[in-house]
Structures are given as structure tokens and as C-alpha cells.
Amino acid sequence: MKKITLSVAALCVAASVSFGADGAALFKSCVACHGAAADRPYLGGKVPALKSIASAERLESLKGYKAGTLNKYGQGAIMKAQTARFSEEDLAAINAYIDSL
């Protein structure tokens, strides 16, 4: 019985790693400000559309906002709050989803 329990647990972990985070679902919380296609500039054009930012730069910005070390365009506090619930895997999935748009 112990072997079966461990096997099931291992399969669950493997499944969660292989399927990963759903960037499209996670991005829904970003739509109000950045638009459904990540093409909406924000703050009267002060913040560029997410699609116009290079993928690597965008991911590093997401990580910086989450860590609280970035305050681009004065949006550090709001972005820290927005990214706080996301894991690094979630941020990568959101970034990949934006790339796919």
C-alpha cells in the first residue's frame, strides 16, 4: 500500500510539472489595465503595451515587481500587489502567453 501511495504522489507531481501554469488563465487578471491582447498602453501611454516589450525584459520586470525591487513608471506598489500571488512558473507562463498573442 505504501508503494502505491508514493507512486500516486509521484504521478501527481509529474503531472503538475508537465502541464505547468496556464498563462492565458493567469493573464485574465491583467486584462483590465493591459487589454485582452496585451496591446493597450496604460497611464495615457506612459506605460507601453506589454506586447511591445521584449520577452526577456518583460519577464525580468515581472520578477522585479514581484520582488518589490522595481518601480517603473511609478507602478511598483500596484504591480507588486498584482504579482504577489504568482509563482516564478506563473510569471513565465504569463510571459509566454503574451508572446503567443
Rank of each mutant, 00 (worst) to 15 (best):
51 K>F: 06
77 A>G: 05
43 L>A: 15
71 N>Q: 12
63 K>I: 06
42 Y>K: 15
19 F>M: 09
23 G>H: 05
35 G>R: 09
57 E>W: 04
68 G>L: 01
66 K>H: 11
9 A>M: 10
46 K>S: 14
17 V>D: 00
68 G>H: 03
10 A>F: 07
43 L>G: 14
10 A>S: 04
74 G>V: 03
35 G>D: 08
73 Y>P: 04
40 R>L: 12
11 L>A: 08
79 M>S: 13
5 T>A: 15
26 L>S: 07
12 C>T: 15
42 Y>I: 15
46 K>P: 06
13 V>S: 04
47 V>L: 01
65 Y>I: 10
45 G>P: 09
36 A>T: 14
69 T>Y: 04
34 H>R: 11
66 K>E: 07
76 G>D: 06
41 P>D: 11
54 A>M: 09
72 K>F: 01
5 T>Y: 13
12 C>M: 13
64 G>R: 07
53 I>M: 03
50 L>Y: 08
75 Q>D: 10
25 A>N: 12
49 A>R: 10
66 K>R: 10
16 S>M: 11
60 E>C: 00
79 M>V: 05
37 A>M: 13
35 G>W: 11
72 K>M: 07
12 C>P: 12
47 V>R: 05
60 E>Y: 03
83 T>H: 00
72 K>S: 06
80 K>Y: 03
32 A>I: 14
74 G>L: 04
59 L>M: 02
71 N>I: 12
11 L>K: 02
21 A>L: 00
16 S>K: 05
28 K>W: 07
8 V>Q: 08
39 D>I: 12
7 S>M: 12
58 R>L: 01
8 V>R: 10
30 C>R: 14
63 K>T: 02
26 L>V: 07
75 Q>N: 03
44 G>M: 02
46 K>Y: 13
70 L>T: 13
59 L>I: 04
67 A>S: 02
83 T>L: 02
69 T>A: 03
64 G>H: 08
66 K>G: 03
77 A>T: 07
29 S>C: 06
29 S>N: 08
50 L>F: 09
61 S>A: 11
60 E>L: 05
63 K>V: 06
35 G>F: 11
24 A>D: 11
16 S>Q: 04
32 A>V: 14
15 A>Q: 04
57 E>P: 05
45 G>N: 09
39 D>V: 12
58 R>M: 02
18 S>D: 00
76 G>V: 13
19 F>N: 07
25 A>V: 09
42 Y>P: 12
45 G>R: 05
78 I>P: 00
29 S>K: 07
62 L>W: 07
73 Y>F: 15
75 Q>Y: 14
18 S>M: 04
42 Y>R: 15
19 F>K: 07
27 F>P: 03
37 A>K: 14
17 V>G: 00
9 A>N: 07
55 S>D: 10
25 A>D: 14
11 L>R: 06
54 A>P: 12
13 V>C: 08
21 A>H: 00
20 G>W: 01
32 A>E: 14
53 I>F: 00
22 D>G: 05
57 E>A: 14
20 G>V: 00
42 Y>V: 15
26 L>A: 08
83 T>Y: 03
35 G>N: 05
27 F>Y: 13
21 A>I: 01
41 P>T: 09
60 E>S: 08
44 G>P: 10
62 L>G: 03
72 K>N: 10
44 G>L: 01
59 L>H: 02
60 E>F: 00
52 S>V: 13
20 G>D: 02
18 S>L: 01
12 C>N: 11
